[in-house]
Amino acid sequence: KSEISQVFEIALKRNLPVNFEVARESGPPHMKNFVTKVSVGEFVGEGEGKSKKISKKNAAIAVLEEL
Rank of each mutant, 00 (worst) to 15 (best):
K53P: 07
E46W: 15
F43I: 09
L67Q: 05
P28E: 10
G45F: 06
S5Y: 04
N58S: 06
H30A: 10
S2N: 07
K56Q: 07
S39K: 13
V22L: 14
M31H: 15
E25H: 12
I4S: 05
V22R: 15
E9Q: 13
E9P: 02
V40E: 04
P28Q: 09
S51D: 09
G45D: 03
G41L: 00
Q6K: 12
I61L: 12
L67T: 03
P17Y: 07
I54A: 12
V18L: 06
N58T: 03
E65L: 06
S2C: 05
E66P: 08
G45T: 08
V40Y: 01
F34S: 04
F8L: 11
F20R: 03
A60W: 00
F8A: 07
R14C: 07
E46K: 13
A11H: 00
K56T: 05
V40F: 03
K53T: 07
L64S: 05
G47P: 01
G47H: 04
R24H: 11
G41A: 01
E46T: 15
N33I: 11
E66D: 13
V35K: 15
V22T: 14
F43Y: 15
L16V: 10
K50P: 15
E46N: 14
V44M: 13
V22D: 11
V63F: 01
A59M: 01
E48A: 14
I4A: 02
R24K: 14
F20K: 05
A23M: 15
Q6L: 10
H30M: 11
K1Y: 09
G45S: 10
E25K: 15
A11Y: 00
K1I: 09
V7L: 10
L64M: 09
V22F: 10
P28H: 11
G27S: 08
S26F: 06
A60C: 12
P28D: 10
V40N: 03
V35F: 14
K1F: 03
I54S: 12
L64G: 05
A23S: 12
E65I: 03
K13T: 08
P17L: 09
G47Y: 00
V22E: 13
E65M: 07
F8P: 05
V7K: 03
I61P: 04
N58W: 00
G45H: 03
E25N: 15
P28S: 12
E48Q: 15
S2D: 06
T36G: 02
N19V: 11
L67K: 04
E21T: 14
G41H: 02
N33V: 11
L12T: 10
F43S: 08
E9L: 06
N19G: 07
V35L: 13
K50T: 13
V7R: 03
V44W: 11
V18N: 00
V44F: 09
V40D: 03
N33C: 10
K1V: 07
K52A: 11
R14D: 05
R24Q: 12
G47Q: 03
L16F: 05
K56R: 13
S51E: 04
I54H: 09
I4P: 01
V18M: 06
G41E: 03
E3T: 08
N58P: 01
L12H: 13
A23P: 14
V40T: 04
E21Y: 10
Q6A: 08
E21G: 10
S39I: 11
N19S: 14
V38T: 05
V35G: 04
E21V: 13
K53G: 08
S51Q: 05
K57T: 15
A62P: 04
I4C: 06
P17S: 14
A62S: 11
E66H: 14
V7C: 03
K53L: 08
K56W: 01
T36W: 00
V38A: 09
K13P: 04
S2A: 06
K1G: 10
E65K: 15
K53N: 08
K56M: 06
T36H: 03
E3G: 04
I4Q: 02
F43W: 10
I61F: 06
V38Y: 01
N15K: 14
A62C: 08
S39M: 12
V22C: 12
F8M: 10
E3S: 09
P17C: 05
E21P: 00
F43P: 03
K37G: 01
E46F: 15
G47E: 01
N58Y: 06
S55L: 01
A59E: 01
P28G: 11
E21H: 12
V44D: 08
G49H: 04
L67V: 05
V18T: 01
A59P: 00
I10N: 01
A11M: 00
K13C: 07
H30I: 07
P28T: 10
K57F: 01
K56A: 05
L12Y: 15
L64T: 05
R24E: 13
A60M: 06
R14F: 08
V35S: 11
E21D: 11
P29R: 12
G49A: 05
E66C: 13
N15H: 14
P29H: 11
F8H: 14
I10T: 04
F43D: 03
K32P: 11
S39E: 10
I61H: 09
G49P: 01
S55H: 00
N58K: 10
L67Y: 00
N15V: 01
K37P: 01
F34Q: 05
V22A: 13
G49N: 01
Q6G: 03
K1H: 02
L64N: 05
E25C: 11
F43C: 08
N19C: 14
I54N: 05
A11T: 02
Q6Y: 03
K56D: 02
S2F: 02
L12A: 15
L67M: 14
